[in-house]
């Protein structure tokens, strides 16, 4: 489904991504971990079109999406969230969802779908509230509901659980599992190794723009390179 091969990106003399290659299949959650500055968010930005890589290929269902505008990548079914939620603060919770193009032909069907998406993340009671009235955790749920609206095939989550209340985290994880059951491919960036080990069968560890290690949670936990560079101590 999503194939990344040899992707590189530099900012001046800093090489943010070095020949990154990875694949994600439908219904698979791949965990991406690494210290700050390892290149995780840059990789996500390159996939969703917010940044253009200097080289390499990013293919979605066999089609190269490098250089494609972010809205076109989104229309192909790639959705993402941000570490700091990027909602439209001056729009209502419902408007945050219906502002995006959708497959629904008429306004009523679109509004109905938006209400259902809000219900799934338990924000339906707040549909008429402005987005700036939501807590940080609720804003992340709003991003999740916005993702549901675009019928994604691939979802890129950037630190979805950071600063989130445990109850909201559980709800988020349930939705993530539901997406996996619907054969959505997920790339999950998370600082907390424990959460990644629970949610992903395959983990990729990034370090200084490159891939340091790749494998199952068990392999990653005991990889000496990872322990040395990232974990500090064996888990």
């Amino acid at each position: 489904m999503l194939r990344i091969s040899g992707v590189s990106k530099s900012f001046g003399a800093i090489r943010a991504l070095r020949e990154i290659s990875l694949n994600i299949e439908p219904g698979e959650a791949v965990g991406l971990m690494g210290v700050n500055g390892a290149g995780k968010s840059t990789l996500l930005n390159c996939i969703c079109g917010l940044m253009k890589p200097d080289g390499g290929a990013i293919e979605l269902d066999g089609k190269n999406i490098i250089g494609m505008a972010p809205h076109r990548v989104s229309m192909m079914g790639v959705g993402r969230t941000f570490q700091v939620p990027r909602s439209f603060r001056g729009l209502t919770v419902l408007e945050n969802l219906i502002v995006a193009p959708s497959r629904e032909a008429d306004r009523e069907a679109k509004a109905d779908r938006a209400h259902k998406a809000l219900k799934r993340v338990k924000l339906d009671r707040l549909a008429s509230n402005y987005a700036w009235e939501l807590s940080g955790g609720q804003q992340k749920l709003l991003e999740l509901a916005r993702l549901i609206m675009i019928w994604p095939n691939v979802v890129l989550f950037d630190e979805p659980f950071a600063g989130m209340h445990s109850d909201l985290c559980r709800m988020f994880i349930d939705e993530l599992k539901e997406m996996l059951q619907q054969r959505v491919a997920i790339l999950l960036v998370c600082h907390d190794p424990g959460t990644l080990y629970r949610l992903s069968r395959r983990i990729i560890v990034m370090h200084e723009g490159g891939i340091l290690a790749e494998g199952s949670p068990e392999q990653i936990k005991t990889d000496p390179k990872v322990v040395d560079a990232y974990l500090g101590t064996a888990h």
């Binding site: 969703c48 079109g49 917010l50 505008a69 972010p70 809205h71 990548v73 989104s74 229309m75 959705g79 993402r80 941000f82 990027r86 909602s87 439209f88 502002v99 995006a100 193009p101 916005r146 609206m149 675009i150």
Partner: peptide, 9 residues
């Protein structure tokens, strides 16, 4: 950016 990634040109 949020607008771009939800599919708006």
């Amino acid at each position: 950016d949020a607008l771009r990634i939800v599919g708006i040109d």
